[in-house]
Write a protein that binds this DNA or RNA. Structure first.
Lengths: 235, 235
DNA sequence: ATAGTATCAGAACATATGTTCGCTGTCAAG
DNA sequence: CTTGACAGCGAACATATGTTCTGATACTAT
């Protein structure tokens, strides 16, 4: 009924992408439609626009409408993700700042973010390379706490360590979670296992014995441990 | 005869420079004159232009005439040269890739980089945000090892943990170092103290007893521990 | 006070730049 | 052959954006 649909990138798409990469590298400023046209031997601005629309659909670029030079390169001609020129976006992609909300102190409930804590004033933050985190962690569910004292020694966590947590109320088997024990008035970090109606809390330190909780209602999951960081002091 | 000449940067110059830096970081696209005006409470485009001219004279920015958004930031408000937009330099500044050289296994000497290992082919690397490291660590002295087994439990280091080390042959008191014990044929991580001719190796776990070495010659410092990272598995 | 300069506003202007539309040519399927 | 999707051109249009001009205000050295 018609011509076969375009499969991949035609030579003009590629030319445009290559030119975009070049210009961004050299000028630090995205080109105009007419500049692209000149560079790629496309005489009409509408045709350039035509290809830009396709590239945007394909996820290669991003455009801001009615903004001059409002083109952002996302993938290059080879399809590799392109570190955006001039943007720290790639920074934000590679490193992630997790708010340091407070301290874990033995005998006190540990700080837990409000259910919506997307806006708040972090006293300070911890920078974590994204590659250290599980792939899909959404930034706004994470927070960090600093451990004070030796109360978490059975979790192999030392005084001064930083734990990066993910806010959650339920634990899956095998996850390390922060748990508030109603009957003892204390917070601990343990591996969580639900076993025929009971809850087994397993210390990270394999030389230590688990705690078996008969009544699951007295355990309250505060969050899930994602990462532990220990900065060994310089002294 | 007239008003005293402007000396340095007025508050508006600074506001503009700061805004420029911000926008470039976040948008990756220089702002228009009107956008600058809005952001800095300058109601007239001519006034913005006025300040931009001054900033250009002062070498803070560069402008391309008759080009929309043709502003390039050269120095920031503090007068520091601004990392060239469009370079991944800022990436490299904030995150640092430490080569993962191998594993620590009980009873085997742990891998130590050759004295010059600036060029080599890392099988893999660990990304660390610079802010997690002591300020002045030079990148090429660092390497990482993964701990296998429970042999480092007395150092509060678990199976699977990653230790970031700095290559060194001598330890200062109070530093946590990797030590090869000649007489026992094993590597351990301990806090190092030299005390009247003897060496005291203190486990990180405060519940455990130190090792006292009478003859300092049987301890061989392999490196110094900078950071310990534990990625809690997802399962 | 007076003059001269720096600072600022607002408008008018010029043009740089994105958007839209009509029209043409090609090609493959029906 | 006809049709319809694709590719392309050029012009017209709308507006986003830099530039310039006139005038007002404030401040300071003379």
């Amino acid at each position: 009924m018609a011509r076969t649909k375009r499969k991949g990138l035609g030579p003009r798409h590629q030319k445009i992408l290559i030119f975009l990469e070049e210009v961004l590298q050299e000028q630090g400023l995205p080109p105009t439609i007419r500049e692209i046209g000149d560079a790629t031997q496309i005489s009409s601005t509408s045709v350039v626009n035509y290809y830009l629309e396709q590239l945007e659909e394909g996820g290669y670029i991003e455009r801001r409408s009615n903004v001059s030079r409002g083109i952002t390169l996302l993938k290059n001609a080879a399809g590799e993700a392109f570190q955006d020129i001039g943007k720290a976006i790639s920074d934000a992609m590679q490193t992630l700042t997790v708010p340091l909300l407070g301290n874990i102190v033995a005998g006190e409930p540990m700080p837990v973010p409000a259910s919506d804590f997307s806006y708040y004033d972090p006293e300070s933050g911890i920078d974590i390379a994204r590659s250290l985190l599980p792939a899909h962690e959404s930034e706004d569910q994470l927070y960090a706490l600093r451990v004070h004292g030796d109360s978490m020694i059975d979790a192999m966590i030392n005084d001064g360590d930083i734990v990066v947590m993910k806010k959650t109320n339920q634990a899956k088997n095998g996850e390390m979670v922060a748990i508030w024990l109603n009957d003892r008035d204390e917070t601990t970090l343990k591996y969580f296992y639900r076993e025929n109606g009971k809850v087994r809390l397993q210390p990270a330190n394999p030389t230590m014995q688990p705690i078996i909780i008969d009544d699951p209602r007295i355990v309250e999951v505060q969050g899930k441990v994602i990462l532990v960081i220990r900065q060994v002091s310089e002294n």
